[in-house]
Design a protein around this nucleic acid. Structure first.
Lengths: 209, 209
DNA sequence: TAGATTGTTAATCGATTAACAATC
DNA sequence: TAGATTGTTAATCGATTAACAATC
């Protein structure tokens, strides 16, 4: 099919980058074609799930053959909008912010952290690879100027809500939050939490001994 | 009831730290008691879900009243095993590893990153707050010596699988992996992936414009 | 063609939500 | 007591898995 309509489950969207990464590895190893069975074995996922996930977006495989690796990579990148350059703002130039920014520059994709902000005068002006840290006052104006829709929050929990509010004010609609705080955002804004402490704490449950 | 048996859904376990964090905030604001209704409104969760989550582990509330904040904090910490000190190993003293280690020391809980490893001689001996980076060769021996069961992987993707294997060798049963790699671990080991790039990529799907 | 594998429908499984008796 | 809220069962919803016709 083609048109939108069938709301895609979050789980499907979150698996797409996993498929993408693995497909790129296969491509590096000059694998031309892969079946859902093979992919499932390699990623420890049910083959039917992989086929169903992909079928949400179109018919990308060939019966009796499988999926062409290069073609599927292109398709998934299109679906995730990774086929165009998307500017990303980062708020917070502490250890974590610097780490994320460096990583983003080391492994450059189409998600480009081009603007970093911090409210600490000691941090403003500092260079992280190619990028220079700007004062937090410029946040909203800069977001609008560059039409930035995606942002990463890497500030202390106490300031995370204020930053989120200002990102939304500036027109951001997708936020990845590393601060350990339950943020409130409007309905139309997609928020994803990636909080180190919570992850570790929930993992502690599974420690036996 | 009391005995184990009813396997707890992962989603429940992952919400417990969220409850915990919020309850601590309530305690800071001298709130003594909270109902599932209030908690749900504050965290944007269904009250029935909160009650059901907690009911997996016991009867912690009082009908007609709600939950006593302090008591519930204690109970959740017991469930997650945060009432005892758990040593955590960190492999990889790059930007991210340093960030995580600093954060862990700034906000000290009972999950203590007490050992950091890196295979880069330039990093070995470096101090991150209180902790000194040790050579990767000592990994297995040190894990065993200190009976470490939890570990964080913050190395490049190329080395993540090898590190995971060695952690398992050393007796680790719970791993938080920050490397963008689909790791393979034995059945008895709990693996959680927290990969920045994947998160950001899946978020890109929701950027409209 | 025969064997393999997709896309899709149907069956299963599990998680979320609603409803309500018990009770503070 | 009357009002509120839990713990829990039942109903709903959604996601995963199995099965298979279509077809390369």
């Amino acid at each position: 099919m083609s048109t939108k309509a069938p709301r895609i489950p979050l789980g499907v969207i979150r698996r797409l980058p996993v498929y993408l990464r693995h497909l790129k590895q296969l491509e590096d190893h000059h694998v031309q074609t892969v079946s859902s069975q093979e992919l499932g074995a390699q990623l420890d996922l049910n083959p039917a799930q992989i086929r169903k996930d992909l079928a949400y977006f179109g018919e990308f495989g060939r019966k009796g053959i499988g999926y062409e690796v290069r073609y599927l990579i292109d398709k998934i990148e299109q679906i995730l909008k990774l086929d165009r350059e998307i500017p990303v703002a980062l708020v917070g130039a502490g250890h974590l912010g610097i780490a994320l920014c460096h990583y983003n520059q080391n492994k450059p994709g189409n998600l480009v952290i081009g603007h970093v902000f911090d409210n600490d005068p000691a941090k403003v002006g500092m260079r992280i690879g190619q990028v220079v840290v700007r004062p937090a006052e410029q946040l909203e104006r800069c977001l609008r100027e560059h039409q930035i829709r995606m942002a990463v929050i890497a500030v202390p929990a106490e300031h995370a809500q204020e930053v989120a509010d200002r990102l939304v004010q500036g027109g951001v609609t997708a936020i990845l939050n590393f601060a350990p705080a339950a943020l409130r955002v409007p309905e139309h804004v997609h928020l994803r939490n990636a909080d180190f402490t919570s992850e570790l704490q929930s993992l502690a449950y599974y420690v036996l001994d």
